[in-house]
Computed example of a mutant assay.
Amino acid sequence: MFEEIYSPVQKIALHPFNNLFVKRDDLIDPYISGNKWRKLKYILAKAKAGHKTHLVTFGGAYSNHLVATAAAASRSGIKSTAFVRGEEVKNEMLLLCSLFGMRLIFTDRESYRNKHSLFEQHFANDDRAYFVDEGGASHEATLGCAEVIAELTETYDHIFCAAGTGTTAAGLLKGIRQQGLNTKLHVIPVLKGGSFIKDEIAKYTPLSDQLKLHQDYHFGGYAKTTPELIGFIKNFTAQTGLLSDPVYTAKMFYAIVDLQTQGVIDKDEKVLAIHTGGLMGLFGMKDKF
């Protein structure tokens, strides 16, 4: 299921940029979208190699990762289960998970903190069950994300990505090193206090001065937003025809515009934004619009 990929690079018109491009990973698949596709590619391969037929993972009630895992498991003919953080709810995302056959186990936030313990409590006797961390964070995920760089046919002065766990950023930095590029990688943590992202990246690949971490674009924290960000999304979409979600990609695009205003990047430099998908995250914030 992971043999074909459609992820073009498109130039977008956004004042005052002359060379702003987007790697459209959001077009890879409607449900296994963006970096979720790339993260799950080698996770699923490893699970199959180990004769595992049951993916067990973790996420919040509006998690794109849960939908992606459910869809990937269904298409691969294997089972999936998710521990969902918080009280039992119903929403569009969890409906999709259920339709793809995923079993949902709602878990209080205290228990959720120890994911390996949850896995052992429920699946210690199931030798076909395979642990998939929240967001797909793993060495295998970085291998898939590194392939973004290998697919590029041109070089860029700057590459931008949003970050939740740092796994995608680690893969991109690994790819930049593998290709011997001088490109600067700008990472936009979407959580408050995002300095830990650098430590997470270091777990998978050596750090370098090509990595630039910008911690001031979280807009209050993970899944938090402000009227300013919502206004930006509306204007950005109207100007470019490109959708972004309030949790990840909108914060990245806002950062690109703001950093150009500050003079950190020049309007004539070649800039590539990695659109990591996640557009269904809009459903979780529809009341903000």
Rank of each mutant, 00 (worst) to 15 (best):
F2C: 12
L94A: 09
T53W: 11
H116L: 12
L94S: 06
V22Y: 08
R177V: 13
V148H: 02
F119N: 00
E147S: 12
R75I: 02
S117C: 10
L185V: 10
G193F: 15
R85D: 04
A137G: 08
N64F: 01
L207C: 09
R128K: 15
E4A: 10
T225P: 01
F100W: 07
D268S: 13
Q121N: 13
H218K: 14
G77R: 04
D29H: 15
K212L: 15
S98N: 11
I12S: 01
H54G: 02
Y222K: 08
V132M: 05
K203H: 14
I230P: 01
I78F: 04
G171P: 08
T81R: 00
M252A: 09
K203F: 13
D29M: 01
D108K: 11
E140N: 11
V247A: 02
G59H: 07
G171I: 06
S138H: 09
Q10G: 01
G164L: 00
H214T: 04
A129Q: 11
P189I: 10
D157S: 11
L185R: 05
K286H: 15
A124M: 13
T261W: 05
S244P: 00
F236M: 03
L173Q: 11
I149G: 05
Q215R: 11
P227T: 04
K184Q: 11
D268R: 03
Y31T: 05
G175I: 02
E120S: 12
T183D: 02
K52S: 12
L55M: 13
E151D: 15
F21G: 03
G171Y: 11
